[in-house]
Computed example of a mutant assay.
Amino acid sequence: MHQSGLHFGAVQFDGPGTDLPRTNSKLNAEYVDLHNNTGQAVQMRGYTVKTTAGALYTFPAFTLAAWKTVRLKNGQGSNTAATVFRKRDTFWFNNSSGSLTLTAPGGAKKDTCAWKANGRGYTTCH
């Protein structure tokens, strides 16, 4: 059964190929998908995505439409309805293991997702 509400979908924690030399393309190969499996749009302003290592992303004004997914990429780019960018120049996720927490503006934890190296660099969260 598919998870309901606002939640993590998948994490690409280790993009294809080598990390170095670091490029924007390689930084953007690290991403997490967030699903809104509700019938109502969610205003994401103030929601945070945080790694166990403390790397943090706080959503600006952004509306995630009902039944839609947004991909949060690590590097530079222009935000759209389907993709937002963390706008960092360092890697976000630990390639061997880690976890993410999605927290609402009031502090309520909405979801978590953990991973361990699996040879694919990718995991699903539900």
Rank of each mutant, 00 (worst) to 15 (best):
V11M: 05
H7V: 01
F91T: 09
Y31D: 05
L27M: 09
Y57N: 03
S99E: 12
Y31N: 06
N37S: 10
F85K: 07
R86S: 11
A29I: 00
T101C: 13
G119V: 07
M1V: 11
C113S: 09
N79V: 11
N74L: 12
A29S: 15
G54N: 07
Y57R: 06
L102E: 07
A41R: 11
K50C: 05
A41D: 08
G98Y: 13
G121H: 10
L102C: 12
T101Y: 12
S78M: 12
G9N: 05
L56Y: 11
F59M: 05
K68Y: 07
N36R: 01
S4V: 09
K116Q: 13
F62R: 12
V49M: 05
F62I: 02
V49A: 07
H7L: 08
G107C: 05
T112K: 03
T101L: 09
S96F: 14
N24M: 07
T51D: 01
T48A: 04
Q40F: 06
G15I: 04
N37T: 08
N95Q: 15
G77M: 15
G106S: 15
S96Y: 11
A29D: 15
R86P: 00
H7M: 09
S97Q: 12
A10H: 07
L34N: 01
T124R: 13
D111M: 05
P16D: 11
N24I: 02
R86A: 13
Q40W: 02
T48N: 03
F93W: 10
R88V: 08
L27D: 03
F13D: 00
G77K: 14
W67P: 00
W92Y: 09
N36W: 01
Q76K: 15
A104P: 00
A66F: 04
Q3Y: 00
F13R: 00
G9P: 03
G5E: 03
T58M: 03
S96M: 12
A53K: 03
G106K: 13
G15L: 04
T63G: 03
G119P: 01
Q12A: 09
C125N: 05
T51V: 02
N94S: 14
M44A: 01
K73M: 15
G39I: 00
P16V: 10
W115T: 02
L102F: 10
L56K: 11
A65W: 02
L100S: 08
K116E: 11
N118I: 06
G121M: 12
Q3I: 09
C113Q: 07
G17H: 06
G75I: 13
G107E: 08
M1F: 10
T90E: 10
Q40Y: 06
F62T: 07
K87W: 01
G46Q: 08
G9Q: 03
A66Q: 13
T90W: 07
A41E: 04
A65D: 13
V42D: 01
L56T: 14
T101M: 11
W92K: 04
A117N: 12
G106I: 09
A104V: 05
L64W: 08
M44K: 03
V84H: 14
N24T: 01
T124Q: 15
A82G: 12
L20T: 08
T112G: 07
R45L: 13
Q3T: 11
Y57K: 01
N95I: 11
K87Q: 15
T23K: 09
S4G: 10
T123G: 03
H35C: 00
H126W: 12
P60H: 14
